[in-house]
Design a binder for these strands. Structure first.
Lengths: 195, 195
DNA sequence: CGAAAATTTGACATGACTCAACTGGAGTGG
DNA sequence: CCACTCCAGTTGAGTCATGTCAAATTTTCG
């Protein structure tokens, strides 16, 4: 159960046996069913979650039923609403499961605890957030500079696993276009022309 | 000269005299002229810069001369290309000055040094990046869910100082629209209708 | 199997882009 | 100080990408 988390952490910092003991005392294991919320708009985000198994979506719900996907989550990713988690204010968006999920969760109090007892984890989370930040910058530049068709092709190249597992309409939402537009882009693609 | 930096840092963590001494030994002060590059595409980003005075833009140059602005920088902001800085790879974008600037800079080696000698600074940068990350998430949601006119109004509400100091065409580039479109949005706005 | 959801398609509307021309102010040199 | 240039900003006309609405079709799943 702890293996995937340690693998993830060891990519950036080294843990010793005591660190692992602390981690095992502060994270809790939890399962969620497909469609179940990890976090619902209006709630305070109580946990940052590390995905061991399954697939999540983080999205904002518009007035007219539109959903805007901020992020997908797969095995080895961290999900949560950092702002709500840190400031203890109501979350402006939802996180739910596109598949049955298994996660490891930590509360903000325990995370502070973890930083105090394993300073190396402060570094770990700085690096994780740094990488997420860099990825978001690239996503913004993409959105600014490329047409939808190109953003879609970039997406399937970058996240082939996601393209396999989530419905097209979710991907359309992530790209900021309608499912109809995505369908037309795919049609053009299949018929040879890539524009 | 060090005052603005300390003010910025103290918003998140506490510094003692020794920390300040270390900081003063690791950062260097530097001036740049209007239009001068802090970082040019293809170079490795050698410094993270804290702006004491002036205004910068961080942007990617497209093939046909378009420029896509990722970020503005004003007094009290940090600018640099984090990815290039950390990975020591060529930067994909430029940073230059919209006004004469004064900055405090640190190299990546010295930043590692700083983390080692003042562990509290590791926490400080984690928090800074966390906040930047959260701001970017909001920007993405805005881009996905709102038309250009609304993004423009949000922008002038959120960054009135920037709207005062930078030309409209730069703001258009930040919003991902053409200067012509922005001009029309402003025209509608002045004539009473906000659409 | 049958209902619900996802995807596709068509017809039409619209927001934003491109290209081009015009305006007005800032800076420069005679 | 004036004439000139340069560049940001504005405006108009036509085009294109994407959205909207509605319906047909396929897939998923109980």
């Amino acid at each position: 159960m702890w293996k995937p988390l340690y693998t993830n952490i060891s990519r950036h910092v080294s843990l010793n046996r005591e660190d692992e003991a602390v981690i095992e005392s502060l994270f809790r294991h939890r399962r969620y069913r497909k469609k179940q919320y990890l976090l619902q708009e209006g709630e305070i985000c109580r946990y940052e979650s590390f995905i061991i198994k399954g697939c999540t979506r983080t999205y904002e719900a518009g007035e007219k039923g539109q959903e805007h996907i901020l992020q997908f989550g797969l095995e080895g990713w961290w999900v949560g609403n950092l702002y709500s988690f840190l400031s203890k204010t109501a979350s402006g968006y939802n996180i739910d499961c596109l598949e049955d999920c298994e996660v490891l969760q930590i509360t903000s109090t325990d995370l502070e605890n973890l930083y105090a007892r394993c300073p190396v984890m402060e570094r770990f989370f700085r690096i994780i957030i740094q990488n997420a930040f860099i990825a978001l910058q690239n996503r913004i530049l993409n959105t600014l500079s490329k047409p939808a068709s190109e953003r879609y092709h970039d997406f399937i190249l970058k996240y082939p696993q996601i393209e396999q597992r989530v419905p097209d309409k979710e991907i359309a939402s992530y790209l900021g276009i309608t499912p109809q537009s995505l369908s037309r882009i795919r049609k053009n693609y299949r018929s040879g022309k890539l524009p």
